[in-house]
Amino acid sequence: MTKTASTRSGRLALLGLLACTACGTSTYKVGIAVDPPTASIYVNGEKVGAGGRSVYEIDFGVDERVCIQAIAPGHEPHFVMLSKQQITDQINQYGDFQWTLRQER
């Protein structure tokens, strides 16, 4: 009886995972760490937080890429356009995005 119940819950979990994969999720949890920690982080032109290290939920919606920017006074701004594949590769190979903004000359 217990074995049947655990098998059933296992199957349900597997089904849930498969459903997520089938839907082709467009939201990713991405760790971003920026030096200086006072830098502002923008995703698709909207301010989402400050430097240091934070995890952001990045939703692609219907778009194929997202734009991530880091801005700090007296520093050169950082700008990247990332596809879902690039974010997946980064998470799998290196983990967080880590950027150090260069001081303006």
């Binding site: 923008y42 698709n44 032109g45 909207e46 919606g61 778009d63 194929e64 890429r65 997202v66 734009c67 920017q69 801005i71 050169e76 701004p77 700008f79 356009m81 303006e104």
Partner: peptide, 13 residues
């Protein structure tokens, strides 16, 4: 690109 997010922020140095 047409498939990029429509909100753009430019930062001028």
């Amino acid at each position: 690109r047409l498939t990029d997010p429509p909100r753009l922020l430019f930062v001028l140095q």
